[in-house]
Amino acid sequence: MLSVKNLHASVGDKEILRGINLEVRPGEVHAIMGPNGSGKSTFASVLAGNEKFTVTSGSVEFMGQNLLDLSIEDRARMGLFLGFQYPVEIPGVTMANFMKMAVNEQRKFRGEDPLTAGEFLRLMREKSAVVELDSKLTSRAVNEGFSGGEKKKNEIFQMAMLDPKLAVLDETDSGLDIDALRIVATGVTKLHTQNNATIVITHYQRLLDYIVPDYVHVLYKGQIIYSGDKTLALKLEKEGYDWLINQQEE
């Protein structure tokens, strides 16, 4: 589904990603962990096509296509979803209008008819239940005045609406209290099938109690320096990154 080979990316003169390799197959959950500044969010942004970053070398194949050649919106329409670490407020644009346009643009890309008003409302109702999102929020402006927890739930709500092939969740657990974490994580788990895949970027093992990863990768200085199974996350939680980093530096 996703094949990343020797990916290098920079912002300005500063190289942040220094040769990432990653294979993601349908049905898999990958966790990416690593100390601050290791390039986790940059990796997510580069996959999504954020123009702040320049890919200097390497390749990314997604659903059989060269991802790096595609526009931000075509990546999304092909089924790549990014859960933003800091969801953006869009004053004056209601969630309902925003989602209607997004869902119908993605349907158009797949050659499907737009949803009728009734179908759309039903979809909104059904999907907002996945993350226990207050249905009143859908008539409010996108993320405007939402609490931290609501913003993150809203990301997963959008993921549910758009039903992506690959979801990259960038620190969706940061800033959540225990209840919101459970709701968000359970929501992600409900959306997981054998046909889609998820990459969760996180600092904390606790998210992985709910979303059980098949692989855990450690990103450090722009490279994946170590990969393991779910037990790696527990070890990292207990022992930190030093043992890995020391091993790396030797």
Partner: peptide, 26 residues
């Protein structure tokens, strides 16, 4: 950032710009 966010959900650059301005005057 808002335009990036909207495009990541599947809106074209033009749609994202238009939606933002519509929101601005709404």
């Amino acid at each position: 950032d808002a335009i990036m966010y909207m495009r990541q959900r599947g809106l074209s650059l033009e749609q994202a710009r238009r939606m933002q301005i519509e929101g601005f005057v709404s």
